[in-house]
């Protein structure tokens, strides 16, 4: 068990190192003086010269990388060209907005989709199963941004149920915040249900074939006892990994949903920074999101033995 945990922890280190190298190299691939890129077109020559020195542009590339990495570890991601704000606080502020929506949505989606998928698998080939599979294939096929626009059009503009633009923090006004995140959360829930249902169904079908399930039935246990007490944990393990992957990729990537509902999240920050050629923010966001993704998947893997202890052997 300890060996598994340490091994998994150690395996994240080379990944994180290569991620930092990739992000560092990315900005160097853009033609032009990196210091000028980082300061924007309006920078004065003496500012550029000062930054050139601070970035160590007169030194070997390896030294430059370590200088950059050292700054990142101290929390210095540089400052935005367009707003002059420090990049790290800016990212954290925007991240809290995206994360609220994503965590709520993935939680709700999992609570609906996992039981639905398992139930469908338990009645494989019944009409219920076919309807669940058909519905999840349909949901899987609707792009999130279009579903969001449709929800915005009907629930927001036609029915006036929810405010259509903006975001209010939960700390300021709980109910108002709830009304602002309702539509983006609904969109994400519907979008993610499809893949989670399919995974939960597939892994339950795998587990239901195993002998210990036949044995549990032969003992005379009721179907629901067999399903929840014996099948659930093993069937849930692969789904748990998928939920982790979804969580990890959504935490950095709901730019499209944030665009539809005009929410000031991390994804929108990145896309706006790409438009504005605000490279310190672009670099910071890509690194931040990739690191979050690696860490979320690490945590998911570390928790995996709770559902399926066989993995540690």
């Amino acid at each position: 068990m300890r060996k598994f945990l340490l091994g998994r922890l150690a395996s994240a280190i080379p990944t994180l190192i290569i991620v930092t190298i990739a992000v560092f190299v990315m900005v160097r691939l853009i033609p032009g003086d990196p210091a000028k890129l980082m300061l924007g077109d309006l920078a004065r020559p003496d500012q550029v010269e000062a930054l050139r020195h601070r970035m160590g542009l007169d030194q070997p590339i390896v030294t430059q990388y370590f200088l950059w990495l050292g700054n990142i570890f101290r929390g210095d991601f540089g400052s935005s060209i367009t707003s002059a704000q420090q990049v790290l606080p800016l990212m954290l502020e925007r991240f809290s907005v995206s994360a609220t929506i994503v965590v709520v949505a993935v939680g709700i989606a999992a609570m609906i989709a996992v039981p639905a998928g398992m139930f469908a698998a338990w009645r494989q080939n019944s009409l219920t199963d076919l309807s669940v599979v058909a519905l999840s294939t349909l949901l899987l096929s609707i792009p999130s941004f279009w579903l969001g626009l449709m929800i915005l059009l009907f629930l927001g503009l036609k029915l006036n149920w929810f405010p259509i633009v903006g975001f209010v923090s939960f700390d300021d006004d709980f109910l108002k915040a709830l009304s602002f995140i309702a539509m983006p959360v609904l969109t994400l829930v519907l979008v993610e249900i499809g893949s989670i249902v399919r995974m939960a169904r597939a892994s339950t079908i795998e587990v239901a074939r195993l002998e210990y399930i036949t044995h549990a039935r032969a003992k005379g246990l009721s179907e629901s006892a067999v399903m929840w007490r014996h099948a659930f944990k093993n069937a849930f393990a692969p789904t748990w990994t998928l939920i982790g992957l979804i969580l990890g990729s959504l935490l950095g990537g709901i730019a499209v949903i944030e665009t539809v509902f005009t929410i000031p999240g991390l994804g929108r920050l990145l896309v706006d920074a790409i438009y504005a050629r605000d490279y310190p923010v672009v670099q910071g966001c890509i690194l931040f999101v990739a690191v979050i993704y690696v860490l979320v998947n690490l945590v998911v893997d570390l928790l995996y033995p709770l559902f399926d202890p066989r993995i540690t052997q």
């Binding site: 994180l16 990729s249 672009v282």
Partner: peptide, 16 residues
């Protein structure tokens, strides 16, 4: 390491 980037993020980085 490439898999450590969510697909769309890597694409966004390259488009940038």
């Amino acid at each position: 390491a490439l898999l450590a980037f969510p697909g769309l993020l890597l694409a966004l980085g390259i488009m940038a």
